[in-house]
């Protein structure tokens, strides 16, 4: 998944929060002058894709999702032609293939349908999060069950039916994503 596409880090990084994941890798630049007789350093890539989406308006037609998330709200698309409610947000309706979709805000609360926890085998950038809980959450009042990290109470204190709320997750490089957090 590494690629040399246009850098996404054009936007100045916002102040990182304590929860923000670190960059996937930190490597030295190959552009530094070096003695040609010496062994080359490990190659570096100017841009390395990570798990988080590219979210600027020059990279996705769903930029509004991330803008709204920075305001604290989860939103998605709905099809005005057939009424289908989508997750994740889309640019074309899978049910009727309409392309003129509308944005709607989603409820910020829900209940756990199923959950587990990652106690080992985490991907890059998530090793220091271990152990962490993940689950499928039924959002209140809409027919959507979406997957997400569950912060807050430790996994041993969760149960099917536990209440959670959506919480924006600011990333160190200015992007944003969401997680769930337990409601006390």
């Amino acid at each position: 998944m590494s690629a040399t596409t246009k850098a996404r880090r054009d936007t100045p990084p916002e102040e990182a929060t304590a929860k923000a994941p670190p960059p996937v890798t930190e490597r030295s630049s190959v552009a530094e002058k070096r003695d040609p007789g010496k062994a080359p350093p490990a190659a570096t890539t100017p841009f390395l894709l990570d798990f988080f989406p590219l979210e600027g308006p020059d990279q996705t037609r769903l930029a509004r999702f991330f803008e709204r998330l920075k305001e604290g709200l989860l939103c998605t698309t709905r099809c005005p032609r057939c009424g289908a409610l989508h997750w994740p947000p889309r640019v074309a309706c899978p049910a009727c293939h309409a392309e003129d979709l509308e944005w709607i805000d989603l409820p910020s609360t829900g209940r756990i349908y199923a959950f587990s926890a990652v106690l080992a085998g985490a991907p890059l950038g998530m090793e220091s999060d271990v152990p962490f809980a993940v689950g499928l959450v039924d959002l209140d009042g809409v027919p959507l069950r979406i997957f997400g990290r569950i912060d807050g109470r430790p996994w041993k204190e969760l149960d099917i039916g536990s209440a959670v709320r959506v919480e924006p997750l600011p990333l160190a490089d200015g992007r944003v994503f969401y997680r769930f957090r337990t409601v006390d």
């Binding site: 798990f51 994740p88 349908y113 959950f115 587990s116 991907p123 998530m126 997957f147």
Partner: peptide
């Protein structure tokens, strides 16, 4: 779904663990 489920730490073990839990 790397961009939407991946950032949460979705890999096979937690998914099939949820199947087992249910």
């Amino acid at each position: 779904d790397r961009a939407w489920d991946g950032p949460h730490g979705a890999t096979a073990p937690p998914f099939f663990a949820m199947v087992a839990q249910r």
